[in-house]
Simulated assay, not measured.
Amino acid sequence: MSAARGSHWFDDDYLQFYWTVQKAVATAKRRAGSRYSPGKVIAELTFDTWRFLLARRYKTTLWPIVFRGLPDLAAEGRGQEDFEGQVAVIYGLRNRCAHHEPSVKSDPLAETAQLDTFDSALSQVARRIDSDAALWIDKNSRIPALRSNRPNSLI
């Protein structure tokens, strides 16, 4: 994204960010310190901000820039809605974990289906952003081992 609009894309008036994103950028700049770099500001943006930058309201301004950076979406005939949907699944998982909500269900098939959805979304989004990072995640994830240790029935 930074190559298309410059490294300070978060300050670009063309993108017409809503006040929530403007507020998030201001907070990120404050956290980054008075001599911030664009990379530090980007690192300080919350997952909430990244998630909502994919909203439909940015379809004509921000999304075309993002889309150019994700060429396999076009090759697969997928678009913003597909990518945003996958990020929303990850966002939901992140919120469940952050609020200590259980991922274990009494129905192992329902649990498996839900965890497969989370795993697929994470893998696809990571692969689209950085294939090397996706390989690293797959190689180092403890999730498959943890899932294989799940008892077949829960009391």
Rank of each mutant, 00 (worst) to 15 (best):
T117F: 01
A98D: 08
D116E: 13
L53S: 06
Q80C: 09
L70I: 11
R78H: 11
Y36S: 11
V66W: 12
I42R: 11
W63Q: 08
R147S: 04
R94D: 09
W9K: 01
G6S: 03
G39K: 05
F83T: 08
T20V: 08
R78N: 07
W63F: 05
L53C: 06
A32R: 04
F83K: 05
Q86F: 03
F67G: 00
A113T: 14
G39Q: 10
D72E: 15
P38N: 04
P38H: 07
V25S: 02
A75T: 13
Q124K: 12
D72A: 15
R128Y: 08
C97M: 14
L115Q: 11
V41K: 02
E76G: 02
D119L: 09
E111C: 10
S2P: 01
M1E: 05
D72L: 12
C97Q: 02
E101Y: 03
P38A: 06
E44C: 09
L115T: 09
Q86Y: 08
A145S: 07
C97K: 01
V25N: 01
R68V: 11
L62G: 06
A110T: 10
A145H: 07
A24G: 06
V89L: 09
P151E: 06
I155G: 13
Y91F: 15
N95A: 07
R128V: 00
H99S: 07
Y91K: 02
N95T: 07
S34W: 04
A4L: 08
V41E: 03
V125Q: 04
W50D: 00
K105A: 15
T60F: 05
P64W: 10
E81T: 14
V87W: 09
L45V: 06
R5M: 08
R94S: 09
D11R: 07
E76N: 14
P71I: 12
T61C: 05
T20E: 13
R31G: 00
R94Y: 07
K29W: 03
T60L: 13
S120G: 01
